[in-house]
Design a protein around this nucleic acid. Sequence first.
DNA 1: AGGTTTTATCGTAATATTGCAATATAAAAC
DNA 2: GTTTTATATTGCAATATTACGATAAAACCT
Lengths: 109, 109
Amino acid sequence: MGVSKTHIFSISQNELAQAAKVFAHPARIAILEYISRQENCICNDLVDVIGLAQPTISQHLNEIKKIGLLKGTFEGKNLCYCINQERWEELQQSFNAFFSNINQNCCQI
Amino acid sequence: MGVSKTHIFSISQNELAQAAKVFAHPARIAILEYISRQENCICNDLVDVIGLAQPTISQHLNEIKKIGLLKGTFEGKNLCYCINQERWEELQQSFNAFFSNINQNCCQI
DNA sequence: AGGTTTTATCGTAATATTGCAATATAAAAC
DNA sequence: GTTTTATATTGCAATATTACGATAAAACCT
């Protein structure tokens, strides 16, 4: 019935899926890539750069923020979003472990 | 209007997002983990192991298959799904590059 | 051929996601 | 204090995803 049955899966399976969901939209990939290229990220830039409406960008930023990937603070009048380094490396390790632990030779065809 | 504006993003951004989408459900994580543990994967096992209905499992397998992550063949009467090693490593590299290329120090707070 | 087992497809319901216009909020500038 | 600028929230429409019952298809076994 359209509801993800998250309760039947392990915590780590749900967490990895949750993180993957954030990367599962090109706008969020683009936003992360753009932020990483800037010294200071002003959100209004994103609207111009990405090409989506301001509320949509705000929504995407919120998704990224929800899994702890962004730190934000004010500097002058502009909100400055930054990538949370600790969290980023944590996720990098999770994905790397997932990719590395999969045995790719279940049956040789 | 609910349509992903994929055309305004780069091919690599869309491809990474597309791959992430496959990992964005705990059932598919669980399926991949289970397949990797088996010598031979019989789909009916998955229904018991994962705890979702057979059509749902079939649907999830199809999502995984669509990005080329599965090779399947028949052995006796049972379909044997295997992880496509080349594709797996390709995706591993894509994710690794994405994680590594992000500069995490856009502004120090 | 007829029955059994396994997987795929169809149809449909519930929920989630994506996107934006309109509006609200908050801080800076004047 | 009002205007400007930047971001967040609300409300809603379009589409996508998740899930499963019913059914079909394919292969095996008598």
